[in-house]
Nucleic acid binder design. Sequence first.
DNA 1: GTCTATATTTCGATAGAC
DNA 2: GTCTATCGAAATATAGAC
Lengths: 215, 215
Amino acid sequence: MPRTAQITRLKPGKRTDIRRENESLIRRAAEKVFAEAGFGGATMQLIADLAGLPKANLHYYFPTKEALYRRVVQDIFEIWLNAAACFDNAKGPVDGIGAYIDAKMEISRRHPDGSKVWASEVMHGAPVIQDYLETTLRDWTDGRIAVIQTWIDSGKMAPVNPRHLLYMLWATTQHYADFGHQIETLNDGGPLTDQQWREAKESVKAVILRGIGAG
Amino acid sequence: MPRTAQITRLKPGKRTDIRRENESLIRRAAEKVFAEAGFGGATMQLIADLAGLPKANLHYYFPTKEALYRRVVQDIFEIWLNAAACFDNAKGPVDGIGAYIDAKMEISRRHPDGSKVWASEVMHGAPVIQDYLETTLRDWTDGRIAVIQTWIDSGKMAPVNPRHLLYMLWATTQHYADFGHQIETLNDGGPLTDQQWREAKESVKAVILRGIGAG
DNA sequence: GTCTATATTTCGATAGAC
DNA sequence: GTCTATCGAAATATAGAC
């Protein structure tokens, strides 16, 4: 009886752990390879080698290359949405937009590969996540535009077109991930230091916040 | 004699025209396919079909897929450098940076595919144009930073880090090309109208110029 | 759940007639 | 300079033993 209990309690748990661990391993390797080579340039062999698994195992956990790619893109999108929470609960543009810039810059620093995969997906016409653009992203965007508009109406910032302001926020922050290689090349080939990242954040925040008349 | 003269005068000219015309045809098709599918996802067959030529002819004009791709990237880079001229000969930041934003936005509108190919190339580590980043782009960047610094020193604008300001200019303007699909999706699926492009330009210029204390 | 071997497809590149 | 046919390499995906 105890043995049976152990089997039914531990064995499935162990199997679930193996599955979760291998899936995570594969997803992290896939994110890096997709970011560096693009969807078309990425190969299941490269991902398998980076994950330290036989190629066939990838197809055991993810039926196709596209299914694995879709999962990677979804993961990134979720990180973005979570970080956007700091946009709400803000008293005004200095807090809200300032915190949003900080959060987006931090994502660019911590998840540059994810940002690149997202950028590549959108640049190629969003064949896999078009539905997210039309639903979740659209709703989120409309909501933030409304928030910004209330700040404008109450005189807390200049009457800047909220939609284009959002695009500027996305563009300036993601640029440090998507064009990180170019930035590093212009930085004598090395990654930005902690101090340089602070300088980047402060520069973006200073220009944007003063630019909307809230700095 | 006249016949010989005709042959030596017209035949090479005609051949040169055919070559130039076909090369241009192939390059335009390649730009579009590389932008939509990435280097890895693009196929010579797709480019050939779009150009209306047999696939073998592409290899007649461009020895390899990579050579054709390199040519496309070089074309874009040249357009960029030419447009950057308006940055010079400016009396101050309002003229210089304002004109630069206008020019870069116009490129995003007229050459969105080229911008995407460039972005994709840089995102994947610039395997083909790394030398351009280290020489031409670096020199250009250093020069503009010096110009901006003189504007700061003479009190014509706020003391914003010139390098990060340049990154913001690149990011905000190219965003309208690289993420054009996302922008169109959020614009009810259609391209921006003339009025919307004006609004975009003015929004970017307003925030940036006021953000640097020159608006 | 793992892994070797292989089937199947696709793509870059070329040969060779016209 | 053009174009059909094809080679050879490489990639996705699967079969089947363990």
